[in-house]
Structure formats: C-alpha cells, structure tokens
Simulated assay, not measured.
Amino acid sequence: MKLVIIEPLGVEKEKLLSMAQEALSGRMEIVYYDTRTTDTNELIQRGEDADVIVVSNLSLNGDVIRGCRNLKLLSVAFTGVDHIDMAACRERGITVCNCAGYSTCAVADLVFGLLISLYRNIIPCDSVCRREGTKDGLVGFELEGKTFGVIGTGAIGLRVAAIAQAFGCRVLAFSRTVKEIPGITYVELDTLLEESDIISLHVPLNDATRGMIGAEEIQKMKKSAVLINTARGPVTDANALSEALKAGRIAGACVDVFENEPPVAADHPLFSAPNTIVTPHIAFATREAMVKRAVTVFENVKLYLKGTPQNVM
C-alpha cells in the first residue's frame, strides 16, 4: 500500500518520515511532497496511485478525489474538513479522518494574544515607542470584570472559556449542545450578543454557521464590544463587520480567518477597518501543535489499517 503526504505538515522532513515509519512499522510505501500546489492536475498526479493521502488545509475538490483512483483514506491534518469535497468522498466510499484536538491550546493562546494586543494597544504602543513617543492616547482596558461570550463550546471554546474565567471574566456561552460546566452560563445567541464585552467564535463552518454573524447580529452588540474570529472566515460577514467598525458600532475585531486561505487580497474590507488586528490563519500553527497533529495523522492511518478507525468525519 502507498501513503502520500501531499503537502508539507510543518514538521521537519526527517522527523516527519521517522514518525510515519515508527507508527506504521514499514507497512506502507511513503511518499512525501515538500511543496504545496493548488493545481488540480498536479494534485491528481501526486495522489493517483495512493491508498492513503495525508493533507492539511490544501483544498481537495471533487476532480482530485475522483482522480485518485486507489484512494481509500484521507487523513486530514486539520480539525475542519470544509476544504475537502466530502460528497465526492462519500460517493467513492473514502474514509475521512481529522485531527480533532491538536490545536486546542494553540488557538486559545492566540485568542488572548490578539485580545490583549487590542485591549492594551500593544501594536501602536510599539510603534510610538520607537518614534520617541509616550502612552498618550493609548491607555487600554483590563479583562477582569468583562463579560466574555463564547460561541461554540467544543474543546477550543471550553479552553477559551476557562482562560477567560482565570482572567476574572463572567463567561456566557451559546452552543447547539448545552453542557454543565462550572462558571459558564449558557444563553440564547441574542442574549450573548447583547451582554458580552468580548465575543469569540469557535464553531465549524457548515450551512448553519455560514454568515451567522452578519449585520443584524452585529447591530445587537455593545458599542464597546470586540469580536474575535479564529474559527472560519465565512462565519462572519466581513463587509458588515468592516462597516460596523468604521461606523463605531462596535469597538474592535481580531480576525485570523478569511473567506479564502492567505494570501488575502490587499483590498479586503477588514484591512481598512479601524481597531482591527488581522493574522494570516496562524492560530493553529505552533511548533508543538504541528507535532501533535502529525502524531494523530499517522495514528489515524495505523488504526484504519487495523480496522478500528478513529476521528472519522
């Protein structure tokens, strides 16, 4: 059998291949590509005789899925699978496994890194300090005593909620599944939007969540509210968010995800919005998280070969 790692996974090649060999005990031929391509024909050429393909956040459309004739398993080195044509996988009977949990700590870390950077004006403070300036006009805010709204309480959402509590925040949550978690009060979405000083999104992208934060929802937020999106770009309406920020209807935004993977066009509406920090989809990307997900990727393959697959989507 043949396993193709169709794009780099953020771990040094030698270490990655050693991890694969150790997990799979030499049961598969392993081919590794250390470059990314979005060309459909090239992706088909890379995976056409693979039994297993390992992919991160590279988009695999239906043509690629159907062109990989021997494909039986996609081990996705990512939490979400909205970049995979799942209909084509079901049509072909291909098993798809994800890497749930590998980036929980990394994403939660970035949520608070972005928020504190915005609350304490760290980026403009750095700039003004280098120009021999002072703190004038740059006095910030504390987290203690704020109401922190978490939309989506999976593993990442719950970790964010726990950190928010450690900062002394009151935590509200909205999720399709209500859990009994000390210190978290589940409320309806409108209540969360109306009462929260900070709103952090942690939902997958699907038909129910696409555009869930649009102009109508933003209108319900406090003028002092900050919106954080480290989930998926299309969960929010970027144009509506930009307009709200420019009009002062909300106080700020921290955005790590967009409608497409970076590079993002320079004329993106959020790039001209005030009080906004943007990052190029880096929430999941720590050295520790890359190793964690590689472990899970190959464990997914190992268990599939044993007939006991895990993390099946």
Rank of each mutant, 00 (worst) to 15 (best):
K2T: 10
I5K: 03
I6L: 08
I6S: 06
P8V: 05
G10V: 00
G10P: 00
V11A: 00
E14N: 07
E22N: 10
A23N: 00
A23D: 01
L24G: 07
M28V: 05
E29T: 07
V31I: 14
Y33F: 15
R36V: 15
R36P: 06
T37F: 12
T38P: 02
D39S: 14
D39H: 10
N41K: 14
E42F: 07
L43H: 09
Q45P: 07
Q45H: 10
A50Y: 05
D51L: 05
L58W: 04
D63M: 12
V64G: 02
V64A: 07
I65G: 00
C68N: 06
N70S: 15
L71R: 01
V76E: 00
V81F: 07
H83A: 12
D85V: 14
A87Y: 00
R90C: 02
E91S: 11
G93P: 11
G93I: 13
I94D: 02
C97V: 06
C99Q: 01
A100G: 09
A106D: 06
V111G: 03
V111D: 05
F112R: 08
L118K: 08
Y119F: 15
I123D: 13
S127D: 13
R131Y: 03
R131E: 15
R131M: 15
R131L: 15
E132I: 08
G137M: 11
F141W: 14
F141P: 02
E144G: 15
G145V: 13
F148K: 00
V150R: 01
I151A: 10
G154N: 05
I156H: 04
L158D: 00
R159D: 04
A161W: 02
I163W: 08
A166M: 11
A166L: 12
A173P: 10
A173C: 12
F174H: 11
R176T: 14
T177I: 13
P182M: 14
I184S: 02
T185S: 15
D190M: 06
D190P: 01
S196W: 03
S196H: 11
S196V: 11
I198V: 15
L201T: 06
P204E: 08
L205V: 13
T209K: 02
G211E: 10
I213D: 06
K223D: 12
S224I: 15
V226Y: 04
L227F: 09
N229P: 11
T230E: 06
T230V: 14
A238M: 03
L241Q: 01
L241I: 11
L241Y: 04
G248P: 08
G248A: 11
R249P: 04
I250A: 04
D256A: 09
D256Y: 02
V257I: 09
E261P: 06
P263S: 11
H268K: 13
S272L: 15
A273S: 14
N275C: 12
I277N: 07
K292T: 03
V295D: 04
V297N: 01
V297T: 10
F298D: 02
F298L: 08
N300K: 03
L305H: 12
T308A: 14
